[in-house]
């Protein structure tokens, strides 16, 4: 008798890759940046990560079960963990636990699963969660710890950090204003609003070599991880280069027009969430443009919007808003940037 074989359709060989692998690589790439953040801002960064991860996995599991999806398969794609980390890193290190939880729930339940889950969400879930918190709780969201190295008083123990996060009690041995303060972008914004020049503001101790003290090292960490992501092609190179390029160009233009009222481009590149956003937030493929040229336009759009929001808008940083705004534009960008098909006449 002739042998019987399984019949499936070609191709029969697949690259050894998976959504889970790509997502795990994103997590690895975040590690240097997270390490820098933890060094400058203490235990809170790590506690936030743990709370966010647990909450995200719980919410994801509950929603998957409710939608009748296979739990193991979808939890194993690590997308919920990536969302959790992306959001947790953006939160202030002493953010109360309910703030983190609320943001995660909004990100996973509303922004992700109500729109159809992995692959179907039009908006970046982590940034939806972040913006909901920023809009609803401006006070909690703008109280950052003063980075290590400016004030000796920062060294909170793990226990004190947990107490601060879960019961809102700051350790009595520190004066409240010795622990928390505004970020460098925030200070720049307020002081410029008061009529000071950029040079005068730069004398504040929160500023480091090029941008905010401590922040610039975290940005460097994210840059290293991000470049690795681009190198292994887990992130499209067009988006970060477009975003940072767009931000740099528009910042340079304004800096050349009036260097006393507009911060230099290198300050903008190294401040806030610019590098982190360029490599980790904007590159989320689900919500970004999917054509090669479209990705460049998408990135440049985010870069310009970030600058406009920072320089003229109501918030000190604008990465989250800029990403969400360009998320809306992504399908249209895709429509008008279709690549020339093989054999199609060059227009």
């Amino acid at each position: 008798m002739a042998m019987r074989f399984k019949t499936v359709t070609s191709p029969f060989v697949l690259l050894d890759t998976s959504v889970g692998l790509v997502m795990r690589r994103v997590l690895y790439a975040m590690l240097p940046g997270i390490a820098a953040l933890a060094w400058f801002f203490g235990w809170g960064v790590l506690v936030n990560l743990v709370i966010a991860t647990i909450m995200a996995l719980a919410a994801e599991a509950a929603l998957l079960a409710a939608r009748g999806k296979p739990l193991a398969l979808y939890l194993g794609d690590y997308s919920a963990v990536v969302t959790a980390w992306l959001l947790a890193v953006s939160l202030p290190p002493l953010a109360p636990w309910w703030l983190t939880t609320l943001g995660i729930l909004f990100a996973i339940v509303v922004a992700k699963h109500l729109y159809g889950g992995l692959g179907y969400n039009p908006f970046n879930p982590a940034m939806v969660g972040y913006v909901v918190l920023l809009v609803s709780f401006p006070r909690e969201m703008s109280t950052w710890l003063i980075p290590h190295g400016i004030d000796q008083a920062h060294a909170m123990t793990l226990l004190e950090t947990l107490q601060a996060i879960f019961s809102g009690v700051l350790p009595a041995r520190f004066a409240p204003d010795a622990l928390t303060g505004a970020t460098s972008l925030d200070i720049l914004r307020t002081k410029l609003g008061l009529g000071l020049t950029v040079t005068e503001v730069r004398n504040s101790p929160v500023f480091g070599i090029v941008a905010g003290h401590g922040w610039e090292w975290a940005a460097l960490g994210f840059l290293v991880g991000g470049l690795w992501l681009v190198y292994i092609r887990a992130a499209a190179w067009q988006i970060p280069s477009g975003m940072l390029g767009g931000l740099a160009v528009i910042a340079t233009v304004f800096y050349l027009i009036d260097p006393q009222h507009y911060a230099p481009p290198w300050f903008h590149l190294w401040s806030g969430a610019a590098i982190y956003g360029a490599f980790f937030i904007a590159t989320d493929p689900v919500t970004a443009s999917a054509t090669p040229r479209g990705r460049l336009i998408y990135g440049v759009g985010i870069g310009i919007l970030v600058y406009i929001i920072r320089a003229f808008g109501g918030y000190p940083d604008g990465v989250a808003f800029a990403v969400l705004l360009m998320n809306i534009a992504a399908p249209t960008i895709d429509l008008y940037t279709r690549p020339r098909v093989f054999g199609e006449r060059r227009a």
Binding site: V110, V132, V135, S136, F137, P138
Partner: peptide, 15 residues
């Protein structure tokens, strides 16, 4: 209650 500003703001109406 701390308030949840988003619900009061226009996006809250849509959601």
């Amino acid at each position: 209650y701390r308030g949840f500003l988003l619900a009061i703001l226009p996006p809250g109406a849509f959601i």
